[in-house]
């Protein structure tokens, strides 16, 4: 498992950690039951404060992606496929919204955007 922190991205460090772990879980790279590094170990490895990693884990816990057991550490939760699919859809929605905003900046109509999407989708298929 790789977690890489950028100190120039402007995104808070806890959000970077949470985002990358979330990504790994949703992509199926981290499967249910996989132990995550302990909060203090991760803080040590990334040379950041304990509370920053704690905050990242707390956020993932809130989303239901990981479970923390006192004395044992944190694990990828046993959330079912349906739940994970939902989460992934939500991420997709987010990305689509970004694309829509971008297209508006460029003055594109919906039909133009849909055409572009269709073209790319078919290209990928081949």
């Amino acid at each position: 498992m790789n977690i890489l922190i950028s100190s120039t991205s402007g995104e808070p460090i806890y959000a970077q950690i949470a985002g990358q772990v979330r990504q790994l879980i949703l992509q199926g790279e981290l499967v249910s039951g996989t132990p995550l590094p302990s909060i203090r170990q991760l803080a040590k490895d990334l040379q950041i404060s304990v509370i920053t990693t704690k905050r990242a884990y707390e956020e993932l816990e809130r989303e239901g992606l990981i479970n923390s057991v006192v004395g044992k550490g944190s694990f990828v939760s046993g959330a079912d496929q349906e739940f994970i699919r939902e989460q992934r859809l939500r991420i997709m929605e987010g990305k689509l919204k970004e694309i829509i905003d971008e297209s508006r900046l460029l003055g594109m109509e919906y039909t133009e955007l849909a055409e572009m999407l269709k073209l790319l989708y078919e290209e990928e298929k081949e």
């Binding site: 040379q47 404060s49 509370i51 920053t52 905050r55």
Partner: peptide
């Protein structure tokens, strides 16, 4: 300060704050 969990700030002999770094 990047590994500090809490920051205590003192100025001119007085406590300014004692806060969670995050």
């Amino acid at each position: 300060d990047r590994i500090a969990d809490y920051i205590v700030f003192i100025n001119e002999g007085r406590l300014v704050f004692n806060e969670m770094r995050e």
